[in-house]
């Protein structure tokens, strides 16, 4: 078993279970986790990282839904396949545009922190728009 340490931060807009999903995928991308590895049980995560087991199980169900892990009843949760890469290739236009934009921002006299802040504001704005769509869809179903 690979010793996977999860670290939950109090961050705006990122639920604790989403952080576990993200950290698992990151570990797969960096090679800390490989296909076939067993993820720690909810009990192990609770003991070592003081994370609520319901949060861990919710994250594992989400990873299972995405096909990244496989829940084998009574045995554990195993990595089934690496997640789809979301970082575009170094040569892509997204990269080039961001580099160009960053250079322009810094040349205009902005401090690095201001640039970071601007990016965060943009992320909050559009990331939140995506969140609104989710909420609206949930509401269509009405109370369970």
């Amino acid at each position: 078993m690979v010793c996977m340490k999860y670290r939950i931060e109090r961050r705006r807009g990122v639920a604790a279970y989403q952080q576990i999903v993200e950290q698992t995928k990151r570990a797969l991308r960096t090679g800390t986790l490989r296909v076939g590895d067993r993820l720690p049980t909810a009990r192990e995560v609770a003991e070592t990282c003081a994370v609520n087991p319901n949060t861990t199980l919710k994250a594992y169900r989400e990873l299972e839904r995405e096909g990244v892990v496989e829940l084998r009843q009574g045995i554990g949760t195993f990595v089934a396949r690496a997640p789809e890469p979301f970082v575009p290739d170094a040569g892509s236009t997204l990269h080039a545009e961001l580099y160009e934009w960053t250079e322009r921002a810094l040349r205009s006299g902005m401090a690095e922190d201001d640039v970071r802040e601007l990016l965060e504001t943009a992320l909050a704005r559009y990331g939140d728009a995506a969140g609104d769509v989710l909420v609206t869809e949930e509401r269509k179903g009405g109370p369970a």
């Binding site: 003081a50 994370v51 087991p53």
Partner: peptide, 14 residues
């Protein structure tokens, strides 16, 4: 606090 919480949550998982 962290150890105590971890131990309690482990019982929840178990």
């Amino acid at each position: 606090r962290r150890q105590t919480v971890g131990a309690l949550l482990a019982e929840v998982a178990e």
